[in-house]
Design a protein around this nucleic acid. Structure first.
Lengths: 115, 115
DNA sequence: ATAGAATATTCATATATTCGAATACAATGT
DNA sequence: ACATTGTATTCGAATATATGAATATTCTAT
């Protein structure tokens, strides 16, 4: 039962990460990190089709990563828990460092650098 | 071109998150967070089939999330960048809080609590 | 050279995900 | 009531993913 509980948690955690595993959704989260926004604005900012954005927002709603408030005809989205962005930030940092490392490995072939 | 670069980054970030979006891989990362381990040990600790574990490890190798060292017949795996665990930790925290919140919403129906 | 232990890969299948297209729904102003 | 604006959903097709089964590879000891 303790074992089951742990597996259950890993499953949930994986589902949460799955939500973060899509470029458009990451972009949306980043935009919502700045401030709450209506769908229209998210569509404009991403340059993607409205239906697509709505679909991704629906997925994030289902996982309680974003929440909504109706304002007239608009639906304003916001982050449920800003810490999600922290997690994103870390993965981004790791990624950037990897890229930098690769670049510095490739660099000597192009121009010599001193360490 | 600036735009392209940004999209490129989101794509890479999504791929990284995708690696975290699988319960067995999360468990493996957690185990490797404690210390480097040979595959055999990971197989034992997870109770999953060897082929499955190797497959998941291969995915994490490809993404540079883990690295390997051969020690005789064994292959020892370790984390490339422990910060990955930080990201995992945060998602786990968020998750736990969500669960707690749900529980506390359900609680009043069972037994009354004071705030 | 060969056997055995540890690990990796290939293949096929079941399942999940993403996206565009079309359409539906909801709120507001007229 | 109706048109308009903003948003959501459904559906189908293409693509991706996870897994078990079988098999291959690598290293060590003999």
């Amino acid at each position: 039962m303790e074992r089951e509980r742990e597996e259950q948690l890993y499953r949930l955690q994986a589902e949460l990460c799955q939500v973060l595993a899509e470029p458009t959704r990451l972009k949306l989260l980043s935009l919502l990190g700045e401030r709450p926004r209506p769908v229209k604005e998210l569509v404009e900012a991403t340059g993607q089709r409205q239906a697509k954005i709505s679909q991704h927002l629906a997925i994030m709603r289902q996982r309680n990563i974003v929440r909504t408030v109706r304002v007239g005809t608009e639906v304003h989205y916001s982050l449920t828990d800003p810490r999600i962005l922290e997690a994103c930030h870390i993965t981004r940092e790791v990624l950037l460092q990897q890229l930098t490392k690769q670049a510095s490995l490739a660099a000597p072939l192009v121009h010599t650098e001193r360490v």
